[in-house]
Design a protein around this nucleic acid. Structure first.
Lengths: 217, 217
DNA sequence: TATTTATTGTGAAACAATTCACATATACAA
DNA sequence: TTGTATATGTGAATTGTTTCACAATAAATA
């Protein structure tokens, strides 16, 4: 439960993912002019239990008022701070195929503070072309451009066959966070975070669910 | 552990997701002409433990040979059957914005047996246009077209604001599986499966990890 | 054929996550 | 000012998941 080295409580991946859900719900509640929200109501909106909401939040502090609930705007800001999204992140998109170019236009990234600042590809026909106001750079320029533009995260949307090669260069350039769309297990040093996004996997889950009359819970 | 009603062992979501990983790994091993694979080797490739691999598989039967390991091709086929991907699924794409049109060209879907058969949009400028050999249909035609073409799954790539309205129609048409890209919690009957794909959430996870020097495990 | 080696399949143990339940605190009404 | 209703924060209990550890068993070898 408590880390021996740091004395910090271990936060589970599920808790972190739920923080994102809370953040999104709170953003909506703010727009609806809610001032406070109870764990019960918040849980209901995200199909969770009130106890879970309270426990999740309690890992990071005590944000509510007994008898009243949580202050919507304040809690939203606190969670933003916890998630590290209370600022703009400079992101580079690597690969401008189907997925890559769709993601460059994906407004949710921008909205959550992930600003795509550079786009790369190795295809001469794409290099120099304009995507949402950004010019596609030659991937050969990547190492120094990542550094010059203070890029901290990279979205990898390249074919599986070249993914590892490119990731090695990305790691070389000091990037510590990678969102990977290639269906492959990337090898990276321990201090580099990789999240794999595999959309077929979600369809396979649905396939399993239908095929087996699956009922979670 | 065991469901009182059905007598079936409860399969966790994590196990199902790992089956997808095993399937992918086995497909690769098959191409590399492996005949058998041990739980140890398979685990190593997917960054899991051998015990986990064996336990996951044991929920569905006994597929290996002691002393030898698992037969690659056979296990792959068995998992395909378990996941329900030993056949083609007819899928409809709803919404041909950035994400929608990218996904229509996304080869992984096709490769895993998810065949996009219909595309819908409500934008008159898009209706009738050609995407990868498919003509975009008017969303008004959706209810009967879904039925006529035996569509069983739907990928929802529409703006959040209209997502619930469209889902209601999709459910009406008898669809039981929905992959949702809209950042919203859809309300559906209990027998309809929804998976939410939220790509910002993955970046937020990375943001948290960097910001907090997070170390999973 | 007997022996050694490798690896599965699986109860039991250990660990992790969720839920319960209640003491505590605050708001609000009378 | 007091009482009542509401809702948090959190140890403890429960439930779920992963790992351990080993008997069982098949292959390879002598």
């Amino acid at each position: 439960m408590v880390n021996r080295d740091t004395g910090k409580k271990k936060i589970s991946e599920s808790t972190i993912r739920r923080l994102s859900l809370y953040y999104r719900a709170l953003s909506l509640l703010e727009k609806e002019n809610y001032e406070t929200i109870s764990s019960r109501e918040l849980a209901k909106r995200e199909k969770l239990t009130p106890a879970q909401v309270r426990k999740d939040l309690s890992f990071f502090g005590s944000f509510g008022t007994r008898g009243l609930g949580y202050p919507v705007s304040e809690l939203k800001d606190r969670i933003a701070k916890i998630l590290g999204i209370n600022r703009i992140w400079n992101v580079a998109m690597i690969g401008v195929g189907n997925i890559g170019s769709a993601l460059v236009s994906y407004k949710e990234f921008q909205k959550q503070g992930f600003a795509i600042k550079l786009i790369f590809d190795n295809d001469q026909r794409k290099i120099g072309s304009n995507h949402k106001g950004l010019i596609v750079s030659d991937i050969k320029e990547m190492p120094h451009l990542l550094l010059e533009h203070n890029i901290e995260m990279v979205v990898l949307a390249v074919p599986a066959i070249v993914a590892q090669y490119i990731v090695d260069e990305v790691v070389q350039a000091g990037i510590k966070a990678i969102l990977n769309f290639a269906p492959i297990n990337l090898k990276v040093p321990d201090d580099v975070f990789v999240r794999n996004e595999n959309m077929s996997m979600e369809l396979e889950y649905l396939s399993f669910a239908i095929s087996n009359n699956y009922t979670p819970n």
